[in-house]
Amino acid sequence: MTARLLPITIGLAAIILAVAYAVGGVWKVSPILLAMGALWWVGQKRHWNLFAPVALVGFVVAAAVGLWMSLPAGWMLAGVVAALSAWDLDYFARRLGSVERVEMRPALERLHLRRLVSVDGLGLLLAGMALVVQYKLSFDVVLVLGLVAVLGLSQMVSYLRRESD
């Protein structure tokens, strides 16, 4: 199941972002994004393990630049979610392929996909709400919120470093 879903998510990520750029009139970027998707797919087939993170960064940067250029935000968000799913499935497929025996493979795949779908759904919903619902905030508030966000993330990362191996 994972093997079938992975090329679909890679294709979705590349096509959504390419179409968004094309719709926004930036035609030149679309082939690059499609090529990046194709390379990711080939890399996954040929076990180029480094390509998945590079492609994820590429797609997220493309989405961020697209948003900055005022291209359709919904498409960009969908592209990021698809790229995140593809990156996750790529790693999951590699984990499954790296061992000699996978016990209860259907159950493992089901659990993984259920988790991924719920994360994607929640992420799309909350990010969509964030895009739709807009409040005007003063610069000071933005600055404080930004600092809180950065500090919060720093705290979380240091906590994770302590907890994780």
Binding site: L67, D120, L126, A127
Partner: peptide, 12 residues
């Protein structure tokens, strides 16, 4: 919108 793009990653 750019901050909103980080939301799926944060949820993940």
């Amino acid at each position: 919108g750019l901050i909103a793009l980080a939301v799926p990653l944060v949820i993940y």
